[in-house]
């Protein structure tokens, strides 16, 4: 309980267990901003009504406030129970939201792979196709693979050059294909919400904590980007596999997506007083 003595505030301020309780509750509210506001509003309304009931029974107002606070119970138990209750029995809404969040992130990942195909194409054009498709020097390809590479790229001077052209081409075409699949996933996943909105429905609020998806996205794409850029750097120095552009194109896009998630996360965090 906060001590409010002389000189600690306006002269009219009196000991108020309800205000003290709400202060303690506020300090322990769960991270979900809307849930936190709701808990606080409900607790305050409850305490005001319980106080009024006590006064109506003839209790002095301070006693009525104290009884209201005592009956509501420990604010730590109040907020702990709220935190547990959110996940005690996952509702279908939570399962549906979690499934859609995972599918949406997978869709965004596939679109990011598609964009990296575009970046690889730009790298092919800017730095030459060896930058993306180049393999380690002196590697021997199986005869059947060579035949395939040379059949697809008849203008190539050697098996190694045909393999390099094939790698640089696959880095673009296969990734663009993945991007199209990602767009399809996002379109199909968003369709029910779009239909709902076109019918005049209010946007449905997700039951997941608002920080969850941006935090997972920033971490996952950030880690993937770091690994891919690291592989590109390793290729530049050691040259153990494909050209550095093969990994660098993916790494740069993954880091950009991670940055977008981090910005989204940063927008949500101030609401929690972080």
């Amino acid at each position: 309980m906060s001590a409010r003595g002389a000189g600690d505030g306006p002269a009219t301020r009196v000991d108020d267990p309800v205000e003290d309780y709400l202060d303690q509750l506020y300090a322990r509210l769960p991270a979900d901003a809307r849930g936190a506001r709701r808990l606080l509003a409900e607790a305050e309304d409850h305490l005001r009504e319980a106080t009024a009931a006590g006064v109506a029974e003839g209790l002095p107002v301070v006693e009525a406030r104290r009884r209201a606070v005592d009956r509501l119970g420990d604010p730590r138990a109040f907020t702990r129970a709220a935190a547990v209750s959110s996940w005690h029995r996952p509702s279908w809404a939570a399962i549906r939201d979690l499934t859609w969040a995972a599918a949406r992130m997978a869709g965004i990942g596939l679109v990011a792979i598609g964009v990296s195909g575009g970046v690889a194409a730009a790298m092919n054009a800017a730095f030459g196709r060896h930058f993306v498709g180049g393999g380690p020097a002196g590697v021997a390809y199986p005869t059947a693979a060579c035949a395939h590479f040379l059949a697809v790229h008849p203008g190539a001077a050697s098996c190694a050059q045909a393999a390099m052209l094939e790698n640089s081409q696959d880095a673009v075409s296969l990734r663009l294909l993945a991007g199209l699949v990602g767009l399809l996933v996002l379109a199909v996943g968003n369709a029910p919400a779009m239909v709902h909105r076109r019918r005049g429905g209010r946007p449905r609020r997700s039951s997941l904590p608002s920080t969850l998806v941006p935090a997972v996205g920033a971490t996952a794409f950030g880690a993937a980007g770091a690994v891919l850029v690291g592989l590109a750097a390793d290729d530049t120095v050691v040259g153990v596999s494909s050209g550095a552009g093969y990994y660098l194109s993916g790494g740069l896009v993954a880091l950009a997506v991670a940055a977008a998630y981090a910005i989204s996360l940063n927008r949500v965090l101030p609401a929690y007083g972080a």
């Binding site: 849930g35 709701r38 808990l39 409900e42 607790a43 409850h46 319980a50 009956r71 509501l72 119970g73 420990d74 604010p75 138990a77 109040f78 129970a81 709220a82 547990v84 209750s85 959110s86 005690h88 029995r89 509702s91 809404a93 939570a94 039951s207």
Partner: peptide, 13 residues
């Protein structure tokens, strides 16, 4: 009484 509100929220979820 504080345990009632989280229970109401859980039932709503």
């Amino acid at each position: 009484e504080g345990t009632i509100y989280p229970a109401l929220h859980r039932l709503e979820r």
